[in-house]
Simulated scan of single mutants.
Amino acid sequence: MLKKSLLYLVTVSILAFLAGCSAGGPRVDYLPSFKKMALKTFAVEKSPDADIDPLNAERIAGAIEGNLRHKGYTSAVQPDFIARYDVSVVENVPSNVSFGFGIGSYGRHGGGSVGTSITPSRDRVAIRIDMVDPRTRKVFWSTSTQKSMPDFTTPESRRAFFNAVVYELLKPFPEAKR
């Protein structure tokens, strides 16, 4: 009986740990009038406040452009909307990982418990993409997320990371209307 309880406790602890590690999807917000807009062309611009090096800025801009083209939009000098991105790095974010283990008592027999808290820190990158009306300069659709920064070993791994993040961010953005 004790082995089953212990197995159950360990299984629940592992599932709780994994659930705590998973991140939610991107946050999306938009104006209600957005659904009526007939958008076909776009341009990409970096926010002047973006805190990112030039090479990663190019990777993000390329990922945004590729995703929007895949959705049927066309790049233009005088676009229907501007995809403006902003990036910032949040340094040394603790992971808030903890693990606990305990065993109860039965009759005269007792048990003990073990607990630990691991709080390693890891840089996170916050990425936001705003769709802006070029005439009014007002945002009509916005999405954002935060991701842990992996240890990049190659330029290709950086590009793959930013492609994946931008794909996740723009997934809810609708395809171009034909």
Results as ranks from 00 to 15, higher is better:
residue 122 R to T: 14
residue 95 S to A: 14
residue 116 T to L: 12
residue 79 P to I: 04
residue 162 F to D: 08
residue 98 S to K: 12
residue 124 R to L: 10
residue 145 T to V: 11
residue 160 A to W: 07
residue 132 V to A: 01
residue 51 D to H: 07
residue 161 F to D: 11
residue 166 V to H: 08
residue 93 V to C: 01
residue 120 P to I: 01
residue 66 G to S: 13
residue 155 P to M: 06
residue 99 F to V: 15
residue 59 R to M: 15
residue 83 A to G: 05
residue 148 S to H: 06
residue 72 G to F: 02
residue 145 T to N: 10
residue 111 G to D: 09
residue 110 G to Y: 14
residue 53 D to G: 13
residue 77 V to K: 10
residue 170 L to D: 07
residue 75 S to P: 02
residue 134 P to G: 01
residue 117 S to V: 13
residue 113 S to I: 03
residue 138 K to I: 00
residue 83 A to P: 10
residue 149 M to S: 10
residue 100 G to E: 04
residue 149 M to G: 02
residue 71 K to L: 04
residue 143 T to P: 08
residue 61 A to Y: 01
residue 95 S to Y: 01
residue 57 A to K: 05
residue 166 V to S: 06
residue 60 I to C: 09
residue 118 I to T: 04
residue 110 G to H: 15
residue 68 L to A: 02
residue 99 F to W: 15
residue 155 P to Y: 07
residue 117 S to A: 12
residue 63 A to F: 08
residue 129 I to L: 06
residue 56 N to W: 00
residue 96 N to A: 12
residue 141 W to G: 06
residue 73 Y to T: 08
residue 121 S to Q: 14
residue 145 T to L: 10
residue 131 M to G: 07
residue 49 D to S: 15
residue 50 A to H: 06
residue 95 S to E: 12
residue 149 M to L: 15
residue 166 V to A: 08
residue 85 Y to Q: 00
